[in-house]
Computed example of a mutant assay.
Amino acid sequence: MTDPHDPATLSGDETLDFPEFDAPPADPMPLLKGWLVQAQADGVREPLAASLATAGPGDPSNGAAVIPSVRTIAVKAFDERGLVFGSYTSSRKGRDLASGPYAAMGFYWRETMQQLRIEGSVERLGQEESAALFRDRPIEAQATAAASHQGEPLDDEDALAERAAALASRAEGIPMPSDWAGYRLVPTSIEFWHGRTSRLHRRLAYRRAAVGAPWTHARLQP
């Protein structure tokens, strides 16, 4: 069994230089984009895979007024406005975001010992942007999205695969499902983290009261 106190359980390149920790920029959005771009250039595996946490109504009868849920998603685009992903509006996360349009997102890149933590409001993209995002998916992914009802019970996996294959072979293309949409997480909180095996991790946190408000930043203890 792996010893959780073994420094080797935290691996990666801790010698990388991150001058932003000593001279933080006023606006973290270009820095956020820079980290995401550099992770791809550094050959990080799955650099745009992120954990997305949402929360939805619970059952007050057992004391759970709100229940959180988390899953791994693929971030499809990012710019100065935020981070874009797609989902079914009828899925668990879609229902959560409809009832409370806020979420948290986390990236962890083991190879470079970097972590990004992002919190903020989530806006649903318009029909045109959502359709463009859907068309950008591989044909097989479009077909699965059109054939599946995400999160619903699965009675026949072979039948689902057959429906997806039939859709993928359509010459006229695959229409976007009516319950599929793009979403954008607009950050109001961003933390940049670089790990060290000594656990003297470097942390730089940004906050703003609302979208459009000025950012503040602070170094945090590990």
Rank of each mutant, 00 (worst) to 15 (best):
residue 81 R to Q: 14
residue 129 E to R: 13
residue 108 Y to W: 15
residue 129 E to H: 09
residue 133 L to P: 09
residue 105 M to W: 04
residue 130 S to Y: 03
residue 86 G to C: 01
residue 95 R to Y: 01
residue 97 L to T: 07
residue 73 I to Q: 03
residue 90 S to F: 06
residue 127 Q to A: 14
residue 95 R to K: 15
residue 102 Y to K: 13
residue 112 T to V: 13
residue 100 G to V: 05
residue 104 A to F: 09
residue 117 R to E: 03
residue 129 E to T: 02
residue 129 E to S: 11
residue 75 V to L: 15
residue 78 F to Q: 03
residue 137 R to W: 13
residue 81 R to Y: 09
residue 106 G to C: 15
residue 77 A to T: 02
residue 126 G to M: 04
residue 114 Q to A: 00
residue 114 Q to K: 08
residue 99 S to Y: 04
residue 84 V to Q: 10
residue 138 P to D: 02
residue 92 R to V: 14
residue 107 F to S: 02
residue 123 E to H: 08
residue 137 R to K: 15
residue 129 E to F: 02
residue 114 Q to N: 08
residue 97 L to K: 08
residue 110 R to V: 11
residue 132 A to H: 12
residue 123 E to V: 14
residue 123 E to Q: 12
residue 122 V to I: 07
residue 106 G to D: 01
residue 127 Q to V: 13
residue 83 L to A: 03
residue 83 L to N: 06
residue 111 E to K: 14
residue 95 R to M: 09
residue 75 V to M: 13
residue 77 A to F: 12
residue 94 G to V: 11
residue 126 G to R: 11
residue 104 A to T: 10
residue 106 G to T: 15
residue 116 L to R: 06
residue 93 K to T: 00
residue 82 G to A: 09
residue 72 T to C: 01
residue 78 F to A: 06
residue 133 L to N: 00
residue 120 G to L: 06
residue 85 F to Y: 12
residue 111 E to C: 05
residue 104 A to N: 08
residue 107 F to Y: 14
residue 104 A to R: 09
residue 104 A to Y: 05
residue 126 G to K: 10
residue 86 G to V: 02
residue 124 R to C: 08
residue 73 I to S: 01
residue 113 M to Y: 02
residue 82 G to W: 08
residue 110 R to S: 14
residue 72 T to P: 01
residue 105 M to Y: 08
residue 114 Q to C: 07
residue 78 F to S: 05
residue 103 A to G: 09
residue 126 G to H: 08
residue 134 F to N: 04
residue 103 A to H: 06
residue 101 P to L: 00
residue 117 R to H: 09
residue 90 S to A: 15
residue 72 T to F: 00
residue 129 E to I: 01
residue 111 E to V: 07
residue 93 K to V: 00
residue 132 A to R: 15
residue 129 E to D: 15
residue 96 D to K: 12
residue 91 S to N: 02
residue 108 Y to R: 12
residue 87 S to N: 09
residue 126 G to T: 04
residue 109 W to I: 02
residue 91 S to C: 06
residue 77 A to K: 06
residue 103 A to K: 10
residue 93 K to P: 10
residue 137 R to T: 11
residue 89 T to E: 00
residue 127 Q to T: 13
residue 108 Y to H: 15
residue 84 V to E: 02
residue 80 E to S: 12
residue 86 G to Q: 01
residue 110 R to F: 10
residue 128 E to W: 00
residue 121 S to R: 12
residue 99 S to F: 07
residue 123 E to G: 10
residue 121 S to N: 08
residue 111 E to T: 10
